[in-house]
Amino acid sequence: MTLLFQLTLYLYLLATAVYVAHFLSQQKKVRAVARAILLVGGVLHTVYFVVRYVAAGHTPLTSSHEAVSFFAWSMTWAFLSFWWRYRVKNFGVFVSPLISLLMLIAAFSSQEIRPLAPALKSNWLPVHASLAIMANGFMALAFCGGVMYLLQEREIKKKKFGIFYSRLPSLEALDNLNQHCLTLGFLLLTLGIVTGSVWAKQAWGAYWQWDPKETWSLITWLIYAAILHQRLTVGWRRRRAAIMAIAGFGAVLFTLWGVTYLLGGVHSYVG
């Protein structure tokens, strides 16, 4: 099982290296190789979760290792699903390093399978946890798109065309990507919070109890709600939308790690 995880990690790292090679050379064949490696990595990663599920006897989304690894899994499949309908030039070279980084973090967390805490024994666990983490996956893609937007815009604005101008897609395409990812991510995040709330009602008798994780999830949700609302009403798009996607992702990361390590609370057994 550890071997399976390591293999996945190495494949993601290799895909990252090949994506970088493609970014520099712009050879189509190299990109096809990178995508194939990432796809195999994604499949192995899926197998890893199935194996871990069988070994643990419960949904493997309860430790820090599992949560971060699933975060990387969501990003990989969200990115690969884009290939289906929504292609963005040279997106992979920005997404794959982040996937690899998450996997490295997961690799350094404890990988042992611990028995399920009694409070988590519920059918809501897989639903709530996977929705919340998959939302993170799309937010991470929006973050990558935001970074790409700022890099591309900088070159156009400064009138100095470097390595990015010809390689990155148009600002319009990147802005669309931003909206696309944020909309899907926001939908998943909303569902994640709602299912968590219903579960809390069943487990503890209250929909909401201002646990730090809950509070920060709500703050994150409000940030993304504001971004999407402002885009439609006063035109927060383009540059500002890119910056907000990056800032929003900061809130996502804080909710994921900052809360666990700094603030504690009922979600802390995830860690």
Binding site: Q152, I156, Y165, S166, P169, S170, L171, E172, A173
Partner: peptide, 18 residues
């Protein structure tokens, strides 16, 4: 890449607007 002024402008427009 574009080597005339007007074509360079068109290329830029495409980078901005798709």
């Amino acid at each position: 890449s574009a080597v005339s002024i007007s074509y360079a402008a068109v290329e830029l427009a495409k980078k901005i607007f798709g």
